[in-house]
Design a binder for these strands. Structure first.
Length: 782
DNA sequence: CGCAAAGCTTATCTG
DNA sequence: AAGCTTTGCG
């Protein structure tokens, strides 16, 4: 037997070995489904299947990266002597990123440029705002956010604008909600995106479907390319994804899907459990394998999770079991406020690190909404515990980054009106609102792009100062376009930074925020440089390392992706949605209060409550050994201090598995509670106001710490005590320096000068060459 | 047209 | 509480 099969149980092995024909794996939480999927792919390759013919689709970049890594590991260590480089040819990725890659090649068939722009949610909303305003509708009534959700839902259900307008039921629905114009907005939005040469996130799926449906040669090509298809988290697929999978698999029918209906938590994105039930009907001879043994959690955790999920009516019957230990009881903690909840969690982490020798990275704090992270950040920072936040505002959504990228986007795709509007007057160059409106109108009536109108501004009657400003702008962009043809993305980005004066502005701004922004822009430049220096990987494209590809890639990039270093010893903070598929030794499920979890915004039907319950189930089953469930009596919301009831989910957990010491249990518990643990008494940490005896402590206003980057990065090198950042003019080649983060090294090359805000320092560190744009982080070693 | 101050809105989850 | 938009003035 191949060695990689030896550590699988009977069901898992069956799931790996059954490689031909449709297969559905119904797998519970912690049952090793990722292991099965990766081993299956490795097994295919070991049996002579060309990696080029395998397509594996996931929902997060992280899951894809993890799979790829594990496959390489299996192939590398396998006795079968397989070339582990094969793994590079695999198509593993999220639905969005794989389809974006294919569409980059196929876009012209659908009337889009190869370099089409990908609009993220913010871009989409901004375009919608323009569309709605242009239609003379009230932006307060037609909120871009709401409209976008509706359009997104339509796209995910494969309903185009014309079909939407023709459907009486949908029209009635919109009339009833007093928004009869949604259909028309949808149509105008679609046209605008198309005119801009742009696809939004939903289009990446929808256009892929249209490609396969309307171009038979494309369908045949990809059906034959992807002989083996694997889909992770199948319960989260929506109708478009379902249809695409069905089309692609129709010839070979070698499709393997893995799913757990109990973990279906993406119905807001159009996902439907129906797809799991439908699978059996779509293909003949579907083999179904159930994985019910859990390898992750203690018996206690699993029992509680099973109990909670059994409250759902619409659930496929399934009982997870484990051979693991009984484990500790689940600790329930109730605090007076959100800030005290933060303090409780940070203190508990500190205590458990000392008592049980856990590392930071073995803890996770899971919450329902991103906004809840604040209190935990503060308390962790106070305790000096390294942490990392996932989600929230990502690097590429920051204003200064988006501005910089908008220039690059416009250079690559001059039709991208969204990018143009963003930067036409940033930095200010005397092109105001009225001028932009005029340009827009002319472009519309001439049926051309705004940039094209600017290029011929004189012809369209612009005069004096405005004309000069427009001409200068056009010349500048054209100049950038010329650079792009003979220089690389990095050189262009640097030039944009210099020439537009953006970097200069940020450089001059010596406030904390200004400095941070300056550093972010430098980080962006670093990122582009690194990216351009990676080798070409794409077999289909001539030059896959061009700026257009970069821009498409980063739009689909989330900050959970660059989690590549395992030494990153930080406590992880994230939403429960983001935690799906992950596991941690110790988990804090926080903010378990009515109105937050279950969230008020969802609670109109039983189905919606059940989805919240599944979400709670996902949260509980992330824990391997220790689990805390916490809630606060009151918390800040929109600046007000509001009261919350404990969540109904708390009462759905059987008492016998719970330790309510910190939640005001019985009299006996109260005693312990007042005393606190030895550790707490040692450290005067009587902090958490008890529920039964909380005298009206006046809630202190949260004290805000100085602004810091949102994502706390692990410090790999602690600068020496006399670390003083240096001036670039004082540097010379060969000099020994200390870097704030990376430690000591030697300068090997210098570019730029102190008068030039973009100076580059090349230095060597333990034999590794690094490029540093930010000399504020370097000091000279004397 | 550009800037600063006042006022209004906002926070579900994701690629 | 914080970010974004509108308003008012030079």
């Amino acid at each position: 037997m191949q060695d990689y099969l030896s550590d699988l149980n009977e069901q898992q092995r069956e799931a790996v070995l059954h490689i031909n024909g449709p297969l559905m794996i119904v797998a519970g939480a912690g049952s090793g489904k990722t292991k099965v999927l990766t081993t299956r792919i490795a097994h295919l390759i070991a049996n002579g299947v060309d990696a080029f013919n395998i397509l594996a689709l996931t929902f997060t970049n992280k899951a894809a990266a993890e799979m790829k890594e594990r496959i390489e590991k299996i192939l590398y260590s396998s006795a079968e002597n397989i070339n582990s480089n094969e793994a590079r040819n695999l198509y593993i990725g999220t639905f969005h990123s794989v389809f974006a890659r294919i569409l980059r090649v196929e876009a012209p068939r659908l009337g889009y440029p190869n370099n089409f722009t990908i609009y993220d949610t913010d871009d989409s909303r901004s375009v919608l705002k323009d569309v709605i305003t242009e239609m003379n509708l009230d932006i307060k009534h037609y909120k871009p956010n709401t409209i976008h959700n509706r359009i997104s839902a339509a796209k995910n259900a494969l309903i185009g604008p014309d079909e939407y307008l023709a459907d009486d039921f949908l029209q009635q629905e919109d009339i009833r909600s007093q928004k009869p114009a949604i259909g028309k907005i949808y149509k105008a939005y679609t046209q605008k995106c198309f005119g801009n040469g742009a696809m939004d996130f939903d289009d990446l799926l929808l256009k892929m479907f249209e490609l396969l449906k309307n171009f038979n040669d494309a369908l045949v090509k990809y059906q034959h390319k992807f002989k083996y298809i694997l889909i992770d988290e199948y319960q989260d697929t929506n109708p478009v994804q379902y249809q695409i999978a069905k089309l692609l698999a129709a010839v070979h029918e070698n499709i393997c899907v893995v799913g757990d209906d109990a973990q279906s938590i993406y119905s807001f994105r159009g996902a439907t459990i129906e797809n799991i039930l439908q699978f059996k009907k779509d293909y003949d001879d579907v083999i179904i394998i159930k994985l019910e043994q859990n390898y992750r959690s203690t018996k206690t955790i699993l029992n509680v999770a099973n109990n909670v999920i059994s409250k759902n009516l619409g659930q496929l019957p399934k009982e997870l079991w484990t051979q693991n230990d009984e484990g500790d009881k689940i600790k329930i903690a109730r605090t007076f406020s959100d800030n005290e909840e933060g303090k409780f969690v940070a203190d508990s982490i500190k205590e458990n690190k000392l008592r049980h020798h856990f590392n930071n990275k073995e803890f996770a704090i899971l919450y329902r909404t991103n906004a809840q992270s604040r209190a935990f950040e503060e308390s962790l920072r106070k305790q000096g515990i390294a942490y990392r936040i996932y989600g929230g505002i990502s690097f590429f959504q920051r204003k200064e980054i988006k501005d910089m990228l908008a220039y690059l986007r416009l250079v690559v795709n001059p039709k991208d009106e969204e990018a143009l509007k963003r930067i036409i007057n940033y930095p200010t160059r005397g092109i105001g609102k009225t001028t932009i409106e005029k340009l827009s109108n002319i472009a519309y009536s001439e049926n051309t792009s705004v940039f094209h109108v600017i290029q011929q501004a004189a012809k369209f009657g612009f005069k004096a100062g405005t004309l000069i400003a427009l001409e200068n702008f056009a010349t500048m962009i054209q100049y950038f376009q010329n650079i792009l043809t003979d220089k690389n993305a990095y050189d262009l980005a640097v030039l944009v930074g210099k020439h537009t004066g953006i970097v200069d502005d940020l450089f001059k701004d010596k406030t904390t925020e200004g400095l941070a922004k300056y550093e972010y822009v430098q980080e962006l430049l670093n990122s582009i440089k690194e990216w351009t220096e990676q080798p070409d990987t794409d077999e289909g494209e001539v030059n896959s390392k061009n700026l257009g590809a970069y821009l498409q890639e980063i739009t689909l990039y989330t900050d959970a992706d660059n989690d590549d270093n395992e030494n990153d010893d930080t406590v992880k903070l994230m939403t429960i949605h983001a935690a799906k598929g992950l596991e941690f030794a110790c988990v804090f499920v926080v903010g378990v209060e009515e109105s937050i979890f279950p969230n008020t915004l969802t609670l109109s039907t039983r189905e919606e409550l059940e989805e919240e319950r599944r979400l709670f189930y996902v949260a509980l089953t992330r824990a391997k050994q220790k689990l805390w469930v916490t809630y606060a009596n009151s918390r800040y919301r929109f600046g007000n201090f509001v009261q919350n009831e404990p969540s109904r989910f708390l009462s759905e957990m059987p008492d016998k598995y719970l330790d309510k010491t910190y939640a005001g249990g019985g009299a006996k518990n109260n005693f312990q509670l007042n005393m606190g643990s030895a550790y707490e008494r040692m450290h005067k940490g009587f902090g958490y106001t008890s529920t039964d005896n909380h005298q009206q402590t006046t809630e202190k206003k949260p004290s805000y710490l100085p602004a810091q980057p949102i994502v706390a990065k692990p410090v790999t090198h602690i600068p020496s005590a006399n670390f003083t950042p240096c001036d670039i003019t004082s540097l010379t080649v060969g000099q020994k320096i200390e870097h704030q983060k990376f430690g000591f090294g030697n300068i090997i090359k210098l570019e730029g000068s102190n008068h030039n805000p973009i100076a580059t320092i090349h230095f060597e560190l333990n034999g590794e060459k690094k490029i540093m744009l930010n000399y504020a982080k370097i000091s000279i070693v004397k």
